[in-house]
Write a protein that binds this DNA or RNA. Structure first.
Lengths: 244, 244
DNA sequence: AACTATTTGTTCGTATGTATG
DNA sequence: GCATACATACGAACAAATAGT
């Protein structure tokens, strides 16, 4: 006996959203192309402008389009990036659903593998970018936030080089959350200077030695995650009172 | 010379969104509580209802609130779940930003570790649930989708038991994407019966043997990921034409 | 440099649908 | 069944931004 599927599509905006999303995924609107204007869409869908706007807003926060104002403005289809995964993870962290030790454990488990994969596929161009990032660590940063970014750059590059977009998304998300923490705590930890910490990793990756690269990353994270752990209390104090 | 930060917060709805989100994260609205009604918010913020509605819609798709209609309806704060991370990953997959081999590799690297952690913290109650899930695999499913769910149940439970919410979120996301694939392809692969496949893993986890649990998971995924790999072409054919 | 057309952003008033008591 | 409180939807306007003339 075939079960019936639950009928319930109240909310017109979700139907509109579904059709627009489907069209984008089907490639009927390619990256860079513009969706019809809100007014046009109201005519095509025969719904009010508010509905259209809600649907487009959702497409925007899920990363499918960006909107611009003015003539030649509108909703432009974009290539989905990993930023929205990152911000979803960040939300989870801000809502205290992920703790710093948990973050540290995951980084410790994943990033050595990423380093290993990067070492396996390293190219000359990649090597150049790594060395470049390493030198940038010693430049004087504009502010704390910039300094953290400079230090994360190597991890970021390795994530891109590992050749697995899933790993890349996860790693970038973790770096993003890490940055949130360090940014908040850093001013109290001025002493924390890690410039040059990545040298061993970079050399191992460039030399193509998978095992060594993973090991070097492991050693680095051992050290870093320890200091990350110490930030836990400071961070929670500085930010919000725990939800009951 | 201190740089000026780019001022640009046009879009009233984003300011409203920011304030509401902040209030929720600060615990000023606890989980289960209701935000003020749209009308009240228009008065407090002194903006139009469309703006309020857009902000609430975004809070909804990012998982901070659910909205209900009718008297006693409104936007209710919810505890952030991992569902939105999952759907963000699913979007990436649907947009061809993640391939099936990539997914397989990540599962292969993460789930043994999850099994290991689960084995380390196993409780009697957990063991009972695992055995329960295993028996359920042999029950006759209602449909293909239900069958996949039954088979994934063990992986799902282990993710919850591993004690790391980050791993949990990632693993559930991967399972979610996997389900999408298998659901689409399964009808062609009726022969694929995996009932009982998880026995070794479950026994190892329950016995608390970390090494064995990880190894059993590795063996299982070896096999499963091979068949997952074969689904790649079938899946892409069945679904959408690639966006070049 | 000013004007114009286009498009999103925002507002208000009103009407309808839906769940609660 | 009716009143209430709320979200949902519509439509017509005006404001603001931006590209082209």
């Amino acid at each position: 006996m075939p079960q019936f599927k639950p009928i319930k599509q109240s909310r017109v905006s979700e139907v509109v959203l579904g059709q627009l999303k489907e069209a984008i995924l089907l490639g009927q609107f390619k990256s860079g192309q513009k969706l019809p204007s809100e007014r046009e869409l109201t005519e095509q869908f025969q719904v009010s402008r508010g509905v259209i706007r809600e649907a487009i807003r959702v497409l925007e926060v899920t990363g499918f389009v960006v909107t611009r104002q003015g003539q030649a403005g509108g909703a432009y289809v974009t290539s989905l990036s990993f930023d929205h995964i990152s911000s979803a993870f960040l939300d989870l962290f801000l809502a205290n659903k992920i703790s710093i030790p948990e973050l540290a454990k995951v980084r410790h488990h994943i990033e050595p593998e990423i380093a290993r994969l990067a070492a396996r596929r390293i190219t000359e161009e990649d090597g150049r970018r790594l060395r470049e990032a390493q030198e940038a660590e010693f430049e004087t940063p504009k502010d704390y936030s910039d300094r953290v970014l400079k230090h994360q750059r190597v991890h970021y590059l390795l994530a891109e080089m590992c050749g697995n977009h899933f790993f890349e998304a996860i790693s970038k998300s973790m770096l993003n959350v890490t940055k949130e923490i360090v940014d908040a705590v850093e001013p109290d930890h001025k002493a924390l200077h890690l410039s040059g910490e990545h040298a061993a990793i970079i050399e191992a990756v460039i030399s193509g030695d998978e095992v060594l690269a993973a090991e070097a990353m492991r050693v680095h994270l051992d050290k870093f995650c320890r200091s990350l752990g110490k930030m836990e209390e400071v961070y929670r104090l500085k930010t919000r009172p725990r939800e009951e």
